[in-house]
Design a protein around this nucleic acid. Sequence first.
DNA 1: TTCTATACATAACC
DNA 2: GGTTATGTATAGAA
Lengths: 214, 214
Amino acid sequence: MKKKTTKGRKKIEIKKIEETNSRQVTFSKRRTGLFKKASELCVLTGAQVAVLVNSPGGRVFAFGHPNVDNLVDRYLKSNSGQNSGAGVTSAVTHYCPLSVPTKEFNQHYAEVSRELEAEKRRREMMIPAGNGGVPWFDEAVDGLPVEELEQYLWSLVELKKKVMTRADELMMINKSPVVLGGFNGVEMGFSGGQTVVNGGGFVFQYGGGEFGRF
Amino acid sequence: MKKKTTKGRKKIEIKKIEETNSRQVTFSKRRTGLFKKASELCVLTGAQVAVLVNSPGGRVFAFGHPNVDNLVDRYLKSNSGQNSGAGVTSAVTHYCPLSVPTKEFNQHYAEVSRELEAEKRRREMMIPAGNGGVPWFDEAVDGLPVEELEQYLWSLVELKKKVMTRADELMMINKSPVVLGGFNGVEMGFSGGQTVVNGGGFVFQYGGGEFGRF
DNA sequence: TTCTATACATAACC
DNA sequence: GGTTATGTATAGAA
């Protein structure tokens, strides 16, 4: 008989995988799984779903049902135009035309998707634009490109801004303290905590502990 | 002893669920699962992911990392100026500037949505995507050199991590997914380290209660 | 929602 | 890409 060569799956912590290679493998496998899940959600419930994934390296993968463009388009229209609240679609933000590369990809995706669906309607998966297995992931991850740093920065800046504003509102409107949670090993709860705002800083606290500062 | 009350999970065919109620339940469960998967993919591999879900009922759910809202700003800035090399790599990041009509629409939509959905995450949102709020931080960061940006980045990333980690803990420990709900008619999913947004703001929820809106 | 019993996804290895 | 042993997501029922 065959020798047991594997110890089987092991539990992992959900945090960035530092090891480049396994990170890439995981990305690939999970991306596939994500698309599959999205696909099943569509088929089972009739919902429309669009998933856009892009690796730090910049490659874009997408899944869409009926297809990405339509979905995005729909969001676009429901925004700029006005639609009753009835059958609503969305009210997300206004999207710009997709960049050429992305556009092409989505286009391609749409085709592939359509074909597969027509064929068996099991799942319309995606496939990166053209190149098969290409080194895309490693490049920018370690040196974390400026653009990514900036994205994070802005993301955080926005978060902070909103947190601040919200904190103010919450404290003004009702006197309920804003609490995000407790500490490790500390009982969880949303009462008894308080939000402290000081010129520029925002601290989430619970009991005597602090777990977040902005 | 306890009677076996369930036959356990059964294999199902991936085809539309006709029974309305179970379809609804499945939608809810799987949507949560999908967001969680997306979240994990982001955390584990550092990829950027956006998920848009349109339920048959018309509700819109979205998940995105990094924060879409901020990417809008980011885009706006790089767009008006020069499409900087920092250019956007993801389709998700290509958003058009929010137009006034859009904002108004979103506002209106939010109201309608509120009426239709008497559940809980209804109320008011604030901070129309973009600016309009506490600019101090914004401006402070605006003309900062890259080196500085990186410093800010690190400090903020650390803070963000704490919050995200905490959210994760809350979710894992209490099994209640920490939800970053959206308004503007868009339900935002949030779990495991992702900040979900969309033209407006988001809501931190815990179990059935809301504990923070930004 | 919550609870099982299972189906399915996937971490390690090849 | 495939295999195997497990960790997880969930269908069905309450």
